[in-house]
Amino acid sequence: MKAGGRGEVWTLAEIREGRLHPVSYELLAWGRGVADALGVPLASVVPGDNPPDAASLFAHGADKVYLAEDPGLKHFLVDAYAGVLADMTEEYEPQVFIASATTQGRSVMSVLYARLGCGLTADCTDLSVRDGLLLQTRPAIGGNVMADIMTPERRPQMCTVRPKSKRPLTPDPSRKGELVRYTPKKSSLASALTFLGFDPELRVGLPIQDAEVIVAGGKGMKEAKNFALLEELARLLGGSVGASRAAVDLGWAPHSSQVGLSGKSVTPRLYIAWGISGAVQHLAGMGGAETVVAVNIDPNAPIFGVSDFGVVGSALEVLPRLIDDLKKNKRHIPAGRLAGR
């Protein structure tokens, strides 16, 4: 599609296990700024089998909600999702389409943009409007380079944004909007893939991509069994356990917990690195954390260069003492301050 028109700004809502995932609301916070700058409506697109009530999307900033409802969209099958979204994009001609850089968002947008012949900018950390166009800012080469990217001609201008890099707007239950029920075409719903099942992972806390607090360990944890201490601290802080590549390669922690260039990019409110020296590849994965605390025996460890607070000392000496103090010391209970911001 070519430039022109007064198309809407779209965000892609995400349903996991039958419920709207919070990234759906974060995306509306991103989209609200863009839609207001362009002076066009903001819409949330919800593909699913039994999509939830749209009221919460209106409350979080949507002017419009498109419900694309069909049993064929019960599971995330990338070809069916991309097919339906391609039809909808062609029919309604949005000028901007924003998704979250989750496994779903990355997958469906990567298939969709190629089908539409549009531009897609991955993993943006900032969005703004310049000369009526979306200005997309994204890191590359492990966060060492920041690039500003525009898509002057093709529509929609597509991008994914980092999960948790923006807080949802304060919900306003009195906000109303327009609900559009879209009936997907049978031909577009046909998928070559068959969903067989989902095996949830046993772990403390949320997946690290969703976690507000990450307690991460590296080689300084010395042994696999010491990761139990990290799990204990994670439980006490309401967080999840992350790991450096070295710790994962040594088999101390699962792949799903690896933070870094060959692992996950994470954006928690608080990242506590235990015995992680801070290779460039690791820093690339946790640079988006709001607050960083590091404990490392080496005063010259690069992790201290990106930390807000550092303790030079042995992780294995400091960690058990901190856990003990947290367990018995009830004077710090700031009741959800982290979660509330």
């Binding site: 772990r203 806390g205 607090v213």
Partner: peptide, 17 residues
């Protein structure tokens, strides 16, 4: 920074099943 040890924070129980 609000991490004084509060097991009521979201995520403390979820996902342990």
């Amino acid at each position: 920074v609000g991490a004084g040890g509060n097991p009521a924070l979201p995520g403390a129980e979820e996902g342990e099943a």
